[in-house]
Design a protein around this nucleic acid. Structure first.
Length: 303
DNA sequence: CTAGGGGTAAAT
DNA sequence: ATTTACCCCTAG
């Protein structure tokens, strides 16, 4: 009875992504056994990992197996009117876009053993959240610290700092982050409240709550509708999607980089995200081709 | 153990 | 009322 539900947190998602990135899709048991991730994922089962990954992949690539069937069925079932003859060309509209897809991840039995390439495309704002959460600095973390963390943990494009600045500013404007003095912290509205169903492990982290809204430094004032719109736009964009799009133009990425820089200078909403993803993908491609190794160091604290 | 199907409870 | 996504169940 009583388990209301159990939502996945950013840390868990990040850990899962990192785990898949390292060991490849499948191998849930391996990921779960990894000491680096077990600290965060010890409450989840391998099946949970699989399911979550499925959900995320489905969301990322468009529609997987279930969604399509369900949607089709629902559409069919939910067409009360319609009728007879004529009309003809029914569907055939969108459906199969067959995304080129950089890599279908979990799907397909191909599953190369060492599938996990270095493609560490992750949504920048998730990265930022992860950085702040993991740093756990009192009063928040400043831009430099966040940048250092991310650069340390993952690879970063040369103009990363600029993109990060834009992103940070944008997130603060959106209300997703609270900016105080020179430090950023996660906004209290971000649904960080209830915690695990298993209270036994006391896990040192998770300092939340306290809507410390002291300063009226305040972000720029955007209307609620505007914020909502931007958020919706951001949400519709997925890392894999962006990565696929970016990978396609990887040959011309060098030229795109210039544009990205310029765009990042102004940095507006999802557009900045897209450019950032492009830059990231470009860097990933270079790395993959045999450049310097990405320092994939995970150093989490797990007392 | 992993992949997939299905149900059902939360959120919009 | 519809959609989202968490969780359980079963087959390979």
């Amino acid at each position: 009875m009583g388990a209301p539900k159990q939502k996945w947190t950013a840390e868990e998602e990040a850990a899962l992504k990192a785990g898949v990135l390292k060991h490849g899709p499948g191998k849930w048991r391996t990921i779960l056994k990894d000491p680096e991730f077990s600290g965060v994922l010890c409450l989840r089962s391998n099946v949970d990992l699989k399911d979550k990954w499925r959900n995320m992949s489905v969301m990322a690539n468009g529609w997987g197996s279930r969604e399509r069937a369900r949607l089709a069925l629902k559409r069919m079932h939910q067409a009360p009117k319609h009728g007879e003859s004529s009309t003809a060309l029914t569907s055939a509209s969108q459906s199969d876009e067959e995304i080129d897809d950089a890599r279908p991840l979990a799907v397909s039995g191909g599953s190369s053993p060492v599938d996990g390439p270095k493609r560490s495309i992750m949504r920048l704002d998730n990265l930022i959240v992860e950085a702040i959460n993991n740093l756990r600095e009192p009063g928040g973390s400043n831009k430099t610290t966040i940048a250092t963390y991310i650069e340390d943990q993952y690879w970063a494009p040369p103009n990363f700092k600029r993109i990060l600045s834009a992103k940070l500013k944008h997130l603060a404007a959106n209300g997703k982050l609270i900016k105080m003095k020179r430090k950023y912290r996660i906004a209290p509205t971000s649904s960080l409240s209830e915690r695990r169903r298993n209270p036994s492990i006391s896990l040192a982290g998770r300092r939340q709550g306290i809507s410390l809204r002291t300063d009226r430094d305040d972000v720029s004032d955007l209307t609620k509708s505007q914020i909502d719109l931007e958020l919706a736009k951001m949400r519709s964009m997925t890392p894999e999607e962006a990565a696929a799009a970016a990978a396609q133009a990887v040959a011309e990425a060098e030229a795109a980089m210039a544009e990205a820089e310029e765009a990042a200078r102004e940095a507006e909403a999802a557009e900045a995200d897209a450019e950032a993803a492009q830059a990231f993908a470009e860097a990933a491609s270079k790395t993959l081709k045999g450049r310097s190794t990405p320092s994939m160091n995970m150093q989490m604290i797990h007392a």
